[in-house]
Simulated assay, not measured.
Amino acid sequence: MREKDAARMYKREMWSSLALYAVILMLAIRFGRPMPEGLLRTVVLASPMIGFGAAFWAIVRHFARMDEYIRRTQLENIAMAAGITAGLSFTYGFLETAGFPKLSMFSVWITMGGAWAGISLLRCRLLAR
């Protein structure tokens, strides 16, 4: 499969899964928050994970379509992003004991995604020279 075709397929799958996530998230917030506490409310509020699962599957499929060099490069980028995220979250854990406000676990994924994107862009720029 050509790289452009694989990228086009990935974008279609990823945007579809993100749209699914957004719709389920809005419905979960709208209907789940006012529900009484219990198992049903927990399931409804966790239901956006269906969209996350679809996005995860799109990423796995995209990695399977990549050639070996691009796959290795992306896995290196993810490994570096995971290291940065681990270091930052570990550091912030110490800062919380010093009185800094507690952060939501959502911030970990934002940090990981930002680090992955930043590293990918930086390496792309450095390799293009």
Rank of each mutant, 00 (worst) to 15 (best):
L18Y: 05
W57Y: 14
P101T: 10
A64R: 15
W15P: 00
V43M: 09
T73Y: 11
M49Y: 12
C124P: 00
T111A: 14
H62G: 04
T85S: 13
E37M: 09
S47Y: 07
P36Y: 02
F106E: 10
K11C: 08
L18D: 03
L25T: 15
M105T: 02
W116T: 11
P101C: 03
F94M: 05
V60Q: 07
P36M: 04
I24V: 15
F31R: 01
Y10G: 03
D5C: 00
L25G: 07
C124V: 02
L126Y: 00
E3C: 00
G113A: 08
I29R: 10
G114I: 13
G38L: 10
I59S: 09
G118H: 04
I78A: 12
P36E: 11
P48I: 10
P101M: 03
L127V: 01
L40M: 13
G99T: 04
A117N: 07
V108M: 09
V108H: 09
I110Q: 09
L75R: 02
E37K: 08
W109F: 15
F106K: 11
A79H: 02
V60E: 07
M1P: 03
G53A: 13
R61E: 11
R72P: 01
A46T: 13
R2E: 02
L45I: 12
V43W: 05
V60H: 06
F31I: 03
W116Q: 10
A117M: 14
I84T: 08
M1R: 07
R123C: 02
S107F: 12
K11H: 12
F90D: 01
A22F: 10
K102A: 11
R8P: 00
I78T: 06
F56L: 15
I78L: 15
A55C: 12
E3G: 01
T42N: 10
M26D: 00
G118N: 08
L95M: 14
A128E: 13
L40W: 11
K11E: 08
S107W: 14
L40A: 15
M105Q: 14
E76Q: 08
L45H: 05
V108K: 06
P48C: 09
F63D: 06
M26Y: 13
G83H: 01
M80Y: 09
E37Y: 04
G113M: 12
R72L: 12
G114D: 08
L39F: 07
R8F: 07
R33Q: 14
G118E: 05
D67A: 04
L18H: 04
A58Y: 04
L40I: 13
A46W: 09
L103N: 01
F56C: 13
S47R: 08
K4L: 10
A28V: 06
T111K: 00
T91F: 07
T73L: 15
M26V: 14
